[in-house]
């Protein structure tokens, strides 16, 4: 039987959830896209914290590396490339805000109702697998998906370069 979480853990969890969800709300509502990316980074860091709370420290580390280090940076570059200064002040949401809120609210209600109603039977003792175990499985059990994903990344890389190249550089 797993021991119940300590109060400190709950406080940490609530703080992380607040950062994550609050930043996520900022991401979808801020007018300035640059600020939105910063909020996204904050939200992603919150998620990394949640991974740590789940005792999945490897995933948390990779998550920070990829999202904060690569994807968010990429977003920043593209924003600097495409968004003009006068766009910053423009309204960043369209006319279907009300239907969207209704839809998302309904969806959220459905999800919550479903997950709270479900009878979860957690394991007796949590023995989270270590980095060593993950590395071993990745190169044995999950070797094929691993290779396929690496191929996918390569193709995505080439595709991204091809798409982003300037027209006049194509000879």
């Amino acid at each position: 039987m797993t021991e119940p979480a300590s109060l400190l853990a709950w406080i940490a969890f609530v703080c992380l959830v607040a950062v994550t969800v609050g930043s996520a709300v900022l991401v979808v509502t801020l007018r300035n896209l640059f600020h939105a990316v910063l909020a996204l980074i904050a939200s992603l860091l919150g998620v990394a914290g949640l991974y740590l709370m789940l005792l999945a420290e490897f995933v948390a580390a990779i998550h920070v590396l990829i999202y904060v280090g690569a994807v968010a940076t990429l977003f920043l570059f593209v924003i600097m490339l495409t968004v003009r200064i006068d766009d910053a002040a423009l309204r960043q949401s369209n006319r279907q805000v009300i239907p969207a809120i209704a839809l998302c609210g309904a969806g959220l209600a459905l999800l919550l109702a479903a997950l709270l109603a479900a009878p979860w039977t957690p394991v007796e003792e949590i023995r989270p697998p270590g980095v060593q175990q993950i590395g071993h499985d990745m190169l044995t059990t999950y070797l094929l998906p691993f290779e396929v994903v690496s191929l996918l990344l390569l193709v995505a890389l080439v595709g991204a370069v091809t798409l982003a190249r300037r027209e006049d550089q194509r000879t």
């Binding site: 279907q96 239907p99 969207a100 839809l103 309904a106 969806g107």
Partner: peptide, 17 residues
């Protein structure tokens, strides 16, 4: 794209329900 996305989400919600 937004209108389509909205309709698609609606559809997904209905299927989930």
């Amino acid at each position: 794209v937004h209108n389509y996305l909205l309709l698609a989400s609606l559809g997904a919600l209905v299927i989930a329900c």
